[in-house]
Amino acid sequence: MENVPPAVIEADNLHKTYSGTVAVDGIRFSVRKGEIYGFLGPNGAGKTTTMKMITCISPRSSGSLTVLGMDPEEHPAEIKARLGVVPQETNLDPDFSCHANLTTYARYFDIPPETAEKKADELLEFVQLQDKRDAPVDKLSGGMKRRLILARALVNAPEILILDEPTIGLDPQARHLIWDRLKLLRAQGNTVVLTTHYLDEAARLCDRLVIMDNGKILIEGAPADLVLEHVGKEIVEVEKNDEIAACIRTMNVPFEIFGDTIQIITQNAHETARILLDQCRPKKLLTRPATLEDLFLKLTGRSLREGA
């Protein structure tokens, strides 16, 4: 049998209902020690609610949940002492400088002031904010604030890092820095749980992930395996017009029409493209590997999600 690391978060039949609305509807998952585990899903899928239950902020309605072997309802302080949380909203303390934000936060974890001072400087360097050490937080750019929040989540050297949309609204440089740091943390043996809308981020970072919609988990697994299994290997895209659509129908291959493009899923894009060019003569043709985005849209549909 394969040597699977122990689970650090386990949920079974987990439910959360807010004043009549079901936000999380009987989900089951387990996060293993040392992996980066992702929660994907459209707005209102229940990702943030799930994070809030894991971080002992929101009590569950029913089902079971254990974090580091403990029940969040019975041992919230013990669990939270070993978690690092990066919330979706920026909630740095505007009354303090960057460095003081970290030391003040460290105090809530009962970390002695001398240790906290040193740790804060290390962490500022880790997220490359050492130049902003004494700057007030309202002088920071959006990307700097997210990096400072990441540093803050690490003051207690957490065993599990929980991030809710860690790179939302960041420029590519800042996103890459955060990704690098998360990979580095994983390399040091930490467990990372994150939610994201960015499918490239999930594909790049996550060892395993779930896709959620309407409070339910639709699928769980390693991103590449999931794409291969549920979408296919490669995709050929051609511009849609009636002639080409008719032509493709005669080829007897599976295809789908999205707006003004036709997608053909195939095991061999080159071969399919060659036949297509020969027989249907499309003006534009594109071959590419199937991605998580294809899987995501296949599972959650293409309609726009309102609210949340």
Binding site: P76, Y108, D110
Partner: peptide, 14 residues
């Protein structure tokens, strides 16, 4: 406005 309470309750503080 500052969401300070949210930040605090993510630590061992209740």
């Amino acid at each position: 406005y500052q969401k300070s309470f949210d930040a605090m309750i993510a630590t061992p503080l209740s």
